[in-house]
Measured scan of single mutants.
Amino acid sequence: GHYRIRINGREFEIRGISEEEIRHLEEALRNGADEKILKEIVDRLRG
């Protein structure tokens, strides 16, 4: 998958993330885990 997200007015492209991972992120966001989720995304993109 290849997705664009906007955070604090800046747009980011996220590549190589699966539909299942996105559902997991959405679930966590609904549970209020904003900073933790951003850290997970950044860590994943770093490799």
Rank of each mutant, 00 (worst) to 15 (best):
R30S: 13
L38T: 02
I5E: 00
A28D: 03
I41A: 03
E27K: 09
V42Q: 03
E27S: 10
E40Y: 04
L29P: 00
V42F: 11
A33C: 10
L45D: 03
I37L: 10
A33S: 05
E19T: 13
E27G: 07
D43K: 06
R46I: 15
R44G: 12
E19W: 08
I37N: 06
G32E: 05
A28H: 13
D43W: 02
S18F: 03
A33T: 13
G1T: 09
R6Q: 15
Y3E: 02
L45Y: 10
S18G: 08
L38P: 01
G1I: 07
L38S: 01
Y3C: 06
D43Q: 05
I7K: 00
E20I: 08
L25Y: 03
D43P: 01
E40D: 09
K39H: 08
R10S: 06
I14R: 00
R44K: 12
V42E: 04
A28S: 08
K39Y: 14
E26V: 07
N8I: 01
R15M: 10
E21V: 05
E19P: 13
Y3I: 10
R15K: 13
A33F: 08
G47F: 06
E40L: 08
S18W: 02
E21I: 05
I7P: 00
R44V: 10
R4T: 15
I14E: 00
E20Y: 07
G47N: 11
R44W: 13
E26H: 05
Y3S: 01
E13K: 03
I5L: 03
N31S: 13
I17F: 03
L38Q: 01
E27L: 11
Y3Q: 01
E11G: 01
I37M: 12
A28Y: 11
R10N: 09
E20W: 11
I37Q: 14
R46D: 13
I7S: 00
E11P: 02
E27H: 12
H24V: 15
H2C: 14
R4W: 13
R6W: 15
I7F: 10
L38M: 08
R44D: 05
G16E: 06
G32K: 05
E20Q: 07
E40C: 03
H2L: 09
G9E: 03
F12D: 00
E13R: 03
R30T: 10
E21K: 03
A28G: 05
I37E: 14
D43Y: 03
G1D: 13
E11N: 04
I37V: 14
I41V: 07
